[in-house]
Amino acid sequence: MPLDKNFFTDVYEVVRLVPKGRVTTYGAIAEYLGTKSSARMVGWAMNSAHSTSDVPAHRVVNRQGLLTGKHHFATPQAMQQLLEAEGIVVENDQIQNFDKLAWYPAKELL
């Protein structure tokens, strides 16, 4: 499947809006973009985001608050370190108080 650069650009625009100290999910971004079933493609976009330094990719986790994208960072600990620098507690690769920290663009960006 060819990569859709316009979709990736749209994903990056949404991720740039995630407030510091909050996280969102692949599925929440897909839903906001009107493609609810494309959470995996959002993941592909995030995997490529590391070449775009102004995209806070560390703020995107899976629907359970797990750091499933951590292996795409420079080191396996980098994603957690970036989140912790923003005051987010991570234990065993999972965001603590995920329900309180989750940011859903479809609700927040009305």
Rank of each mutant, 00 (worst) to 15 (best):
G43I: 08
L17Y: 03
F73A: 13
D99V: 15
H50G: 13
G27L: 11
L17T: 07
A45I: 02
S38G: 11
A102K: 11
H72G: 08
G21N: 03
L17M: 13
M41I: 12
V11M: 11
M79G: 01
P76T: 05
Y12T: 06
F7Q: 04
V42M: 07
P2L: 12
N62C: 09
L101S: 10
G65P: 06
S51T: 12
S48D: 06
L109K: 01
V90L: 09
Q77V: 07
L66G: 10
P56F: 01
K5G: 03
Q96R: 05
A49Y: 00
P105L: 09
G43D: 03
D99G: 02
Q96F: 11
V18A: 05
T52P: 02
Y12S: 07
M1A: 13
P76H: 10
D99T: 12
R59A: 01
G34Y: 03
H71D: 06
Q80E: 05
E86Y: 09
R63V: 14
G21A: 03
R40W: 00
H71I: 11
A57E: 01
G65V: 10
K70P: 00
F98I: 09
E108S: 04
D10W: 15
V15L: 02
G43P: 01
L101E: 09
D4C: 13
K20I: 02
E84R: 04
F8L: 09
A102P: 00
M46I: 13
V15N: 12
V89M: 13
E84P: 04
N92I: 12
T75E: 13
I29S: 04
T35G: 14
E86Q: 04
L67M: 03
M46L: 06
A30E: 10
P76L: 14
K70D: 01
R40E: 15
N62R: 12
L3T: 10
A49Q: 08
A74T: 14
M1H: 14
Q81F: 04
Q94E: 15
E84W: 12
D99H: 11
F8K: 05
L101G: 03
L109T: 01
V11K: 05
E84H: 07
S48N: 09
L82K: 08
Y32S: 12
L110R: 03
M79F: 00
Y104R: 09
V90D: 13
A74K: 11
A45L: 04
R40T: 13
M41H: 02
R22N: 06
D54Q: 13
N92E: 13
P19R: 09
E91K: 15
Q96K: 05
Q96V: 15
V55L: 02
T9P: 02
S48C: 11
G34T: 13
M79E: 02
D99N: 12
R22M: 10
I88S: 04
A28I: 06
M41D: 10
F98G: 10
V42A: 09
V11S: 06
V23S: 06
Q96M: 15
S51K: 11
A78M: 05
A49I: 04
R40M: 14
N6D: 05
S51A: 08
F73L: 09
R16H: 02
